[in-house]
Simulated assay, not measured.
Amino acid sequence: MIDFWTPVSGSRAGEVVADWVWGWALSRGAPDPVTEPDGYRIDVGLPEHRVRYVLPDPSSVGPRAAELTEPGTWLKVCGSPEQVRAGLSSRWTIGAPEYLMSTELGTHPPTIPPDPYTLELRSTGDVHDAVVRTAGGECAAKGRVAVRGGAAVIDMVETDPAHRRRGLGSVVMSELTHVASVRCAVRAVLVATEAGLALYEKLGWTVESPITAAHLAAAPTLR
C-alpha cells in the first residue's frame, strides 16, 4: 500500500499529471482537456461519464465538488481515498486506490509472445492497440498507447482471466513501450489499479502519486 502524499502542482509529478490527462483524452477519443484553476476538465460526453475533473491537489476537492450535481460527473484526484473522502458528501461514490506511474523510455525491443499466442498491432493516427491472440484468434490480452509529443499514455491494459500468469501482460507492455519509443516518446505514463501495481513496478515503473476516483451516480429508479 502506498500511503504517502506530496502535492504535485509545479513538480515533476505535475508534468506527469498533464501528460496523463492529455494522453488519456487522446486514447479515449475525447475532446482536448480544458485547463481549470484547480486542474483539468475533460468533457467525455458519455451517459455515465459525462465530464471528468482531474485535480492535482486534494485540498481542492471540497470547493470543486460543492459546484457539481450532475450524475455522470467524475473526479480523479492525486490523493488517497481518505483525503478525497474528507471533501465529499455522501452522494459521491469513491473508488478503490489507484496509482499514477511513469517510466523513462529508451530502447525497448518488443517481447515475443509464447506459443501458441501471436501479437497484433493496430494503429490509428497517434493511438496504437496491441492485442495478443490465441491460436483460435480470440483476444487473450490487450492494451493501448496514445503518443502525444514526447509523452505516451498506456491505457486499457487487460488480460483475460483464462490466460493470466503466462506473461502476456508483460508482452503487451513491452510492445506498447516499444511503439512509443519508436515514435519518439521519452516518457510513458499510466494509472494502475492495485492489481496491476506489482506488474508495473516489476517492469521498472515508478509511483508518482496515489490516485482516487469519485463519481456521482444516477439515483436508482423507483418501481
Rank of each mutant, 00 (worst) to 15 (best):
V145E: 06
V145K: 04
V145M: 13
V145W: 07
A146W: 04
R148I: 05
R148F: 04
G149N: 12
G149C: 12
G150I: 04
G150C: 13
G150Y: 09
G150M: 11
A151I: 07
A152T: 02
V153S: 14
V153I: 08
I154L: 14
D155V: 10
D155G: 01
M156N: 15
M156C: 15
M156Q: 15
V157M: 14
A162E: 12
H163K: 12
R164W: 07
R166Q: 14
R166W: 00
G167P: 00
G167N: 08
L168E: 07
L168N: 07
S170G: 15
V171Y: 00
V171H: 14
V171E: 08
V172P: 01
M173K: 07
M173V: 02
E175S: 15
E175H: 14
S181Y: 00
S181N: 01
V182E: 13
R183P: 04
C184L: 13
A185F: 02
V186P: 02
V186M: 14
R187A: 10
L190Q: 12
L190F: 01
V191L: 11
A192D: 06
T193E: 11
T193Q: 12
A195Y: 10
A195M: 13
G196L: 05
G196N: 09
L197Q: 11
A198Y: 02
L199R: 02
Y200S: 02
E201K: 10
K202N: 09
K202M: 00
L203I: 03
L203Q: 12
G204Y: 01
W205M: 05
W205S: 01
T206N: 15
V207N: 02
E208I: 01
E208F: 05
S209W: 06
P210I: 08
P210S: 12
I211H: 02
I211C: 08
T212Y: 07
A213R: 07
H215E: 11
L216V: 09
L216F: 03
A218C: 02
A218M: 05
A218H: 12
A218E: 09
